[in-house]
Design a binder for these strands. Structure first.
Lengths: 218, 218
DNA sequence: CCTAAAAGTGACCGCATAGTCATTTTTTGA
DNA sequence: TCAAAAAATGACTATGCGGTCACTTTTAGG
């Protein structure tokens, strides 16, 4: 847990520090991310960081939980029961996910980057836990749909869950590719249309759903 | 390129060095992998490594190309034309892939681990190239199947290719999970049946194909 | 205004890395 | 047998890291 000193910081400075480290941890492994370099770019002393946090991991986990909290606020309130079928629900998840991405690109990229620490001795256990949770969640969802007669039942639920988790991850990567392509295109034209971006990103999701739906239906 | 000194080494020593570094690079990032630690475990001097290779990257790329060469020997000879449909061809690719895995676990794991260096400043360009090649290959294959009327044509080829690449990666990860589970189960019983392992791994592929087939068919 | 607490600092420590190179050891073949 | 070539060595360099701490500066409030 961060120390009181950190929470006593002026909001702008707190934000600046968080932003700088989000950036660093989005682009490097936990081990390769360098506190020394970030404080240099921030123009503060390295010692200060250790007035705010216990150590590097404490800092990392603080960012992680902050970003997760932010994202959760977007996801919260979504309930399978409120949708006529699983894919409408699935799509809505991505709709709020895209909103989160467009409104908090740094946080979103950081959360994605966490998953790239598969080999980090410090971080891998957190990833492992997260993956297990995701698989369990998806398994339960799929089991529900199978029981309700909405999904095929000739393929093991574990397999379908693995398939769906990977497809979900892939959607995220695909969206980033599409976003970069389109972002550069818009840059040339010297504009940046938020609503249009959202539409383009969600088109990727819709296309993926077209494929997934067929794969999972009876 | 490795220096002559390396190729002049006695085969056993050469193999031992390669094996030790395959192991290290399978478990750590390129940057985090430690030559110092590997040479210690090998019982040779660090200077020797620099008699064999220009530098760390040279060593890494040597292992990469060696493993790729080994795997290529398994894949080579497979031709879409020799199969009645795409999924029979796809399955055969995994059949030889599984064989490669069972016969060269270190090489196979190393090749998989390359992909985890997305954030490595030294390695990421190689991954990027590899990904682009994979996507291009898959795109061409899919285009062929669409033109032949075997695949649906209402989803962009780029999307289908992204979907298929991710599913393929996922199969690999799924197989490792399944393999570990089953390997441990067999260990308890104190046996290790190669043919049975192969069958179990390929069952994962078959299940994935059941899903993919539906997703892609007209 | 002045003092005590809080915040900020950066030189420094211990450690680990990739890579070098003068020196020693081993191998080779005439 | 012996000298020249090849290979092996490990102390050493330069660099970078996370983390510490004695010290300085800023802030707060009686």
């Amino acid at each position: 847990m961060p120390k009181d000193t950190f929470y006593n910081l002026k909001p702008e400075k707190k934000k600046a520090i968080e932003a700088a480290f989000l950036e660093e941890f989005s682009q490097k492994t936990f081990e390769d991310a360098s506190i020394s370099q970030v404080v240099k770019s921030l123009g503060i002393a390295k010692g200060s960081i250790y007035q705010y946090f216990e150590n590097k991991l404490d800092l990392y986990l603080h960012l992680k939980s902050e970003c997760e909290k932010t994202k959760l606020a977007y996801i919260m309130g979504l309930n399978r029961k409120d949708f006529p079928d699983f894919w409408k629900y699935f799509r809505k998840m991505y709709e709020v996910g895209v909103l989160f991405y467009l409104e908090n690109p740094q946080a979103s990229k950081f959360l994605t980057a966490i998953g790239k620490n598969t080999h980090s001795p410090t971080i891998k256990s957190y990833i492992h836990d997260w993956r297990n949770q995701a698989h369990q969640m998806f398994e339960e969802m799929i089991r529900g749909e199978v029981k309700a007669g909405n999904f095929r039942k000739d393929v093991a639920i574990k397999t379908m869950s693995f398939f769906l988790v990977s497809a979900s991850t892939s959607i995220g990567e695909y969206m980033e590719v599409i976003y970069d392509m389109d972002f550069n295109k818009e840059l040339e034209k010297g504009q940046k249309d938020f609503a249009k971006q959202k539409k383009i990103l969600l088109q990727s999701v819709d296309d993926y759903i077209l494929l997934l739906q067929k794969a999972f239906e009876k």
